[in-house]
């Protein structure tokens, strides 16, 4: 079982003068059980692509295979779409704008009820999800509208986590959060991945790519231009991808150039580099 994107193309506003080609014959695979980052300049088609993974958008041509689901251009053939959405869930950019219930716990339970769970069962699961994102009992009965931005974001993420999808997609989950809030969410993502979830991250932050992902996909002008590991990406010439190599990685490369014995592939954060340097001594 895997996630396969097969020669997928998509345009917005088809047959109008404003037609935009968002994806142009894109093919690649996403490994299961790993954290994969999808990066690329703004407007490169990232959000478009992830919406196809749970059938919110259908490709104009080509198809996607997600485990035993298939998303094709023909509407009729995509019958199990609701099951697919339970299997693959998306946390959209700024998900806090989709909260609407009177209380936090009700909002988190909302998705569960849609998938047929009973009221009390869904509230119970909602509490578990809230705990996962680090929100305690005192939040249960509060209105989601009176929370801070970061707390709202966590409630929204809990709403998706509660559904317990096998594949979790997050579109710029740390955009607009302070360092601490970002850290919280990134740790949560790591934890989820450790428990077996496949994670797909859309991000502009190269440090997240380096530090948190196993695999990276680069989209450029609606086409695929790279797939591989972060260290493979950053040791390449990335000048036409509009990507900035993380300072830490540049530094490690520089050390290596000066004949220090550094295993570039294992550098994910400062601690990794420090540990390797210690061993060299």
């Amino acid at each position: 079982m895997a996630i396969k994107i097969n020669d997928v193309s998509f345009s917005y506003l088809k047959k109008t003068p404003n037609e935009v080609k968002a994806l142009d014959h894109v093919s690649f695979e996403i490994p299961k059980g790993k954290i994969t980052s999808i990066i690329g300049h703004t407007g490169s088609g990232k959000s478009t692509l992830i919406q196809m993974l749970n059938g919110l958008l259908l490709p104009d041509s080509g198809f996607l295979e997600i485990d035993d689901f298939k998303v094709t251009s023909e509407k009729r053939k995509n019958k199990r779409i609701k099951d697919l959405r339970k299997h693959v869930s998306i946390v959209f950019q700024f998900p806090e704008y989709q909260l609407f219930e009177e209380t936090v716990e009700k909002d988190v339970a909302f998705g569960l009820k849609n998938y047929g769970l009973k009221e009390n069962e869904s509230i119970e699961k909602a509490h578990l999800a809230l705990k996962e994102v680090g929100l305690d009992k005192s939040f249960y009965k509060r209105s989601p509208f009176e929370l801070s931005g970061g707390e709202k974001r966590r409630v929204a993420i809990a709403g998706i986590l509660a559904i317990d999808p096998e594949i979790l997609i997050l579109d710029e989950p740390t955009a607009g959060l302070d360092p601490k809030g970002s850290e919280l969410i990134l740790n949560l993502i790591k934890e989820l991945n450790r428990n077996g979830k496949t994670i797909i991250l859309v991000t502009h932050d190269m440090n997240i790519v380096l530090n948190h992902s196993d695999y990276v996909i680069v989209l450029n002008d609606s086409t695929l231009s790279f797939k591989g590991t972060p260290s493979e990406l950053f040791t390449r010439d990335v000048s036409n991808y509009s990507i900035e190599i993380p300072e830490l990685f540049k530094f490690a490369l520089l050390l290596k150039e000066h004949q220090l014995n550094i295993d570039i592939e294992k550098i994910k954060n400062v601690d990794d580099l420090i540990n390797q340097l210690k061993e060299i001594k």
Binding site: Q51, N54, L56, K82, R85, K86, S89, I90, V91, F92, P95, Y97, Q98, F110, G111, N114, Y115, G159, I160, I163
Partner: peptide, 13 residues
């Protein structure tokens, strides 16, 4: 449309 998609991700039909 954005909100509809987000809620569809939470199982709203």
């Amino acid at each position: 449309q954005r909100i509809m998609k987000a809620q569809a991700s939470r199982g709203v039909d």
